[in-house]
């Protein structure tokens, strides 16, 4: 896995940074720099993003967590003790899986705009979603039997930008967005800080509140005025102000 290190290479604890979907480690550099004096920071490009090759086709977040655990051990990053996972969005899905599947490796988890739980949707939304699924299947069926190209048009019209741009990662994308990490969150025991932007429309505060109810040892903080992506740039100082006291408590 491609990585970039910030801070004292011999420092403790080790922070493992996990970026969001469609991004790479660069997205987390501004925040990591603000926290550099707290230890050693390792920022990964997750498999299939940046400079790290993808895992097998259709790999889910459990596979990502297992691959990460193996990699951390191989790179001696857990030699001096468990690490602190700090993730954004998709990176938080991997963090929750890590905490549930490899608890001995994880000292604490910090989630920023963390994804992984289903949102409450209106009946209208659900109705629309299921009709679209049926429409998509019909398009695929028609393409197969009648050699039409409806599916492509369907994807273009209704697929999300992430779905359209996923390329070889499309199977992973589908498996990731359909999972619901309730059991994994409930199995998480380590101290967890949940940070959500009040204006986040991708992973709204609602998801953070659900995580807070599921994870025993968690703190939930909503940051006024920040969205899903700008929380990492112009919101970095507010994140820093929340993370520092959490680290003092945990370390």
């Amino acid at each position: 896995m491609h990585r970039s290190d910030i801070g004292d290479p011999a420092g403790q604890p080790v922070f493992i940074w996990l970026h969001g979907w469609g991004q790479d480690h660069h997205a987390l550099v501004p925040l990591a720099k603000l926290l550099k004096r707290f230890g050693r920071h390792v920022l990964f490009d997750l498999p299939g993003f940046g400079q790290t090759p993808m895992l097998h086709k259709g790999a889910g977040t459990a596979d990502y967590a297992d691959a990460l655990a193996k990699h951390l051990k191989r790179q001696n990053l857990t030699l001096k003790g468990p690490v602190i996972l700090i993730g954004h969005s998709f990176g938080c899905r991997v963090s929750v899986q890590m905490a549930a599947r490899h608890p001995a490796l994880v000292r604490a988890v910090i989630m920023i705009g963390g994804a992984g739980l289903k949102r409450d949707r209106s009946q209208m939304w659900n109705l629309r979603a299921s009709s679209l699924i049926i429409l998509g299947r019909l398009a695929r069926l028609s393409d197969k039997i009648l050699r039409t190209s409806f599916r492509q048009a369907y994807t273009h019209r209704f697929g999300s930008a992430d779905y359209r741009n996923a390329g070889d990662m499309r199977d992973t994308f589908v498996s990731v967005v359909t999972e619901n990490l309730i059991a994994e969150a409930a199995a998480t025991n380590c101290p967890t800080l949940l940070l959500y932007g009040s204006e986040d429309s991708e992973t709204p505060p609602e998801i953070g509140q659900k995580y807070a109810a599921l994870i025993r040892n968690s703190q939930y903080v909503e940051l006024e005025g920040f969205g899903h992506l700008d929380i990492l740039s112009r919101g970095a100082h507010q994140l820093e102000a929340q993370i520092k006291p959490f680290l003092k408590e945990v370390l």
């Binding site: 005025g225 112009r234 100082h237 507010q238 102000a241």
Partner: peptide
């Protein structure tokens, strides 16, 4: 100005 606003202790 915007940076200062973003860095206020809320």
């Amino acid at each position: 100005g915007l940076q200062f606003l973003d860095a206020l202790d809320s």
